[in-house]
């Protein structure tokens, strides 16, 4: 029998990782919804965002400035990338767009390696204390990450629900041609979504950096998990992705009570396969007939 404290600790761990995963996945799912293709460069935007964060952190010593600077820089870079490489492909075979994002991914990764070198960098957390959770010392910073992620996701939610731009994004996601016939500047909406997605990836990169350190391959693990989450939550479904992030992270956290964390990942893939088999439109949306 597993003691109750351990269950609680794992539940908190699961929610914390789930929230940051949700941050990565909501950018990815937003971009998927509007472009109909997976953005293979998403993990690299996450990684590069973390690097930009380290640069700002080294010069200013301020974590919050690093977070803000990374978001703004990556939003601008995301917009520039979208305008130069993806906008011209709008309306073409999705495969060309997939390849283009793959190309962006390679360029960003090699740029990071060339610019920052192979030695991992670190950002210091803005909050260093611990609190006592039963027998272990639990870092406050982990709770802060979860809360900040929730705030950012909540902000995105309100923006998508009530903002004019949010309505433009949802309309364009549903029917690109009709949206343009209503005077919605569809190319600009695409660019905006890519910029928002990049900024959210950057935010998660910076938030996560103090826990793991920043290196040019750090995006890989998270993107893989974000892809799983986006599929399980229903491609392009924002709410579904958020729920799936938390659900899968909790599942992995509990699974790691019995097996090693590396093996616990398998649980997510089992859920992924089951979802694809039985609920291809997502775990939380009823499959249309």
């Amino acid at each position: 029998m597993i003691p109750f404290e351990q269950l609680l600790v794992q539940a908190i761990n699961g929610i914390v990782t789930g929230m940051i995963l949700a941050l990565v996945a909501s950018g990815l799912t937003l971009i998927f919804g509007i472009m109909d293709v997976v953005n293979f460069a998403h993990g690299d935007l996450f990684m590069l965002g973390a690097y930009v964060g380290t640069t700002v952190f080294v010069t200013t010593g301020n974590f919050w400035l690093a977070l803000l600077g990374a978001c703004v820089t990556m939003a601008a870079l995301g917009a520039a990338l979208q305008i130069t490489t993806l906008r011209p492909l709008l309306g073409r075979d999705p495969l060309t767009t997939i390849l283009a994002t793959f190309g962006i991914s390679l360029v960003l990764q090699n740029y990071a390696l060339w610019q920052y070198g192979p030695v991992p960098r670190k950002i210091m957390e803005p909050l260093t204390g611990h609190f006592q959770l039963f027998h272990i010392e639990y870092p406050w910073y982990r709770l802060l990450i979860a809360m900040l992620s929730a705030v950012i996701i909540g902000g995105l939610w309100l923006f998508m629900k009530y903002g004019t731009y949010g309505i433009w994004i949802r309309a364009t996601t549903q029917d690109r041609l009709m949206a343009s016939a209503m005077g919605i500047p569809v190319p600009r909406v695409h660019t905006g979504v890519f910029a928002i997605g990049a900024a959210m990836a950057a935010a998660s990169g910076v938030l996560f950096a103090p826990l793991v350190g920043v290196n040019h391959a750090m995006g890989f693990d998270f993107t893989l998990r974000a892809f799983v989450v986006v599929v399980v939550g229903g491609m392009g479904n924002l709410g579904g992705s958020i729920l799936a992030s938390i659900f899968l992270s909790l599942l992995e956290a509990f699974a790691s009570l019995w097996v090693s964390p590396a093996q616990a990942v398998i649980v997510s893939f089992i859920v992924l396969i089951l979802t694809l088999l039985f609920r291809p439109t997502g775990l939380f949306v009823p499959t249309p007939k």
Partner: peptide, 11 residues
């Protein structure tokens, strides 16, 4: 582009 056409006054 369609969104320019729409803004000129064609629905």
């Amino acid at each position: 582009a369609p969104h320019h056409v729409a803004r000129l006054g064609i629905a």
